[in-house]
C-alpha cells in the first residue's frame, strides 16, 4: 500500500502561492518606495507581472486542459490593440481610474471573442494538430494587424496613455491567480482536468467536452488579452512584431519550466524567465548562449526525479519533522546520560 500517493490539499497550496506572491510584492514595493531599486529593476516589474498573467492563463489550456496551444501571443496582441485603441479614444473623456480598468475589460473581452471565433475550428483538433493550427492563427492575427490602417500598421500604434504601474499590474496578477485557482478547484475545473486525463471517460461521465474545452480556451484568451492591455499601456509604442510566435514559445517555455498544471511554478518561472535575459545583459555576446544553457540545465533539473526528491526533502513540513526528530533524539540521549 506504500505506492498509494496522497495528494496535498489544493486549498492550502493555493494560499501558500498567494502568500508567496504577496510577500514578494511587499518586498519589491518597499525596495522601490525607499529608493533602493535601480531604474533598470523598476522597468522590469510590469513585464514580470504581465508574463505571470500570460503564463498562468496559458497554463489553464496547456497544463489543465492538456492542449498545447501556440497562439497565446495572438490573443495578447488582440487584447493589447483593442485596449489601447479604447484608451486613445477615451483619453479626453474618462479619468484614468475608470478608463484603464475599462480598457482592460475591453481588451480581455475582445480577446475572448477571438478565442471563441478561433476556438470553433481549432478545437475540432487535438494534440499536435491543434498546436500547429493555433500557431498559424497567431501568425494570421499578427499579419492582419500589421496590414490594418487603424492599428498603425508596421510602424506601430502610438499615443497610448502610459497607465500601467506596478501596483495596478500586481492587482491584476492577484485577480488572475484567484480566478484561475478558484476555477481549477471547482466543478468546472474538475471537468477541464478530467478531459485532460481521459476525454472518453469524461464524456461518459456526462461532461460536455466541447463546451469545457472552449471554456478553458476562452478564459485563457481573456487573460492574455488583459495582459496585452497592460503591455500596451506600459510602452510608448505598440508594435505588432513583438507578438510573433517567439513570444508564444517563450510563454510555453515558462509554463513547461514551471511545471504543467502548477500555478505556483508558472509564477516562479515567469519571474525567472523575465529577469534572466536582463540579468545576463553584461555578458554581451554570450548573453543568448548562456540564457539557452541555463534554460537547458533548469529543464533537465526540473524533470529529474532526484531533484524532485530533494525538493520534497526541503519543503517546510519535512524540515520541521526533521528538526523535531533531532531534538527528540538529543533529549533521549541526555536522559540516558543523567541516568548513568
Amino acid at each position: 500500500m506504500d505506492s498509494i500517493k496522497k495528494k496535498r490539499k489544493p486549498l492550502t497550496s493555493n494560499l501558500i502561492t498567494l502568500a508567496i506572491v504577496c510577500v514578494l510584492f511587499a518586498v519589491v514595493f518597499i525596495l522601490v518606495e525607499t529608493g533602493n531599486a535601480t531604474r533598470h529593476m523598476r522597468s522590469m516589474l510590469v513585464p514580470i507581472c504581465i508574463n505571470i498573467i500570460l503564463a498562468v492563463s496559458l497554463n489553464l489550456t496547456v497544463g489543465f486542459l492538456g492542449e498545447l496551444t501556440l497562439g497565446h501571443a495572438g490573443f495578447m496582441s488582440v487584447g493589447a490593440y483593442a485596449g489601447c485603441l479604447f484608451s486613445i479614444a477615451m483619453e479626453e473623456i474618462l479619468p484614468m481610474a475608470l478608463r484603464f480598468p475599462l480598457a482592460m475589460l475591453v481588451g480581455g473581452l475582445v480577446a475572448a471573442c477571438f478565442g471563441v471565433l478561433i476556438g470553433i475550428p481549432v478545437l475540432r483538433l487535438h494534440g499536435d494538430y491543434l498546436a500547429i493550427v493555433t500557431l498559424a492563427f497567431g501568425e494570421i492575427i499578427r499579419s492582419i494587424i500589421i496590414n490594418l490602417e487603424f492599428t498603425g500598421g508596421a510602424a506601430g500604434l502610438k499615443g497610448t496613455p502610459q497607465d500601467s504601474t506596478f501596483v495596478i499590474a500586481f492587482v491584476v496578477v492577484l485577480i488572475t491567480l484567484v480566478v484561475i485557482m478558484n476555477l481549477v478547484n471547482s466543478r468546472h475545473g474538475r471537468a477541464i482536468t478530467a478531459i485532460r486525463d481521459n476525454r472518453i471517460a469524461a464524456e461518459a461521465c456526462g461532461i460536455n467536452v466541447t463546451y469545457f474545452r472552449m471554456l478553458a480556451f476562452v478564459i485563457a484568451a481573456f487573460f492574455a488579452g488583459v495582459a496585452g492591455v497592460l503591455y500596451g499601456h506600459n510602452l510608448s509604442i505598440l508594435s505588432a512584431s513583438t507578438f510573433d510566435y517567439n513570444k508564444s514559445i517563450e510563454l510555453l517555455v515558462i509554463v513547461v519550466l514551471g511545471g504543467m498544471g502548477s500555478i505556483r511554478g508558472s509564477v516562479i518561472s515567469a519571474i525567472i524567465i523575465t529577469v534572466l535575459p536582463e540579468a545576463l545583459r553584461e555578458l554581451d555576446d554570450f548573453r543568448m548562449l548562456i540564457y539557452a544553457l541555463v534554460l537547458i540545465v533548469m529543464m533537465i533539473l526540473n524533470a529529474s526525479p532526484r531533484f524532485a526528491a530533494l525538493k520534497g526533502k526541503l519543503n517546510y513540513k519535512a524540515l520541521a519533522d526533521a528538526v523535531r526528530a533531532k531534538s527528540a533524539s538529543s533529549k533521549a540521549n541526555k536522559g540516558g546520560q543523567t541516568h548513568e
Binding site: 495528494k7 466543478r187 474538475r190 471537468a191 482536468t193 478530467a194 485532460r196 486525463d197 481521459n198 472518453i200 471517460a201 469524461a202 461518459a204 461521465c205 456526462g206 461532461i207 498544471g261
Partner: peptide, 25 residues
C-alpha cells in the same frame, strides 16, 4: 453510465475528485 475494459480513470486526480467528476451534472 459505463465502465471501460481498459480502465479509464482520471489518473492524476484524487479518488474523491474522480467521483466528483461523476457527480458533475
Amino acid at each position: 453510465a459505463r465502465t471501460f475494459q481498459n480502465i479509464r480513470l482520471f489518473s492524476n486526480m484524487t479518488v474523491l475528485d474522480n467521483v466528483k467528476v461523476g457527480l458533475h451534472n
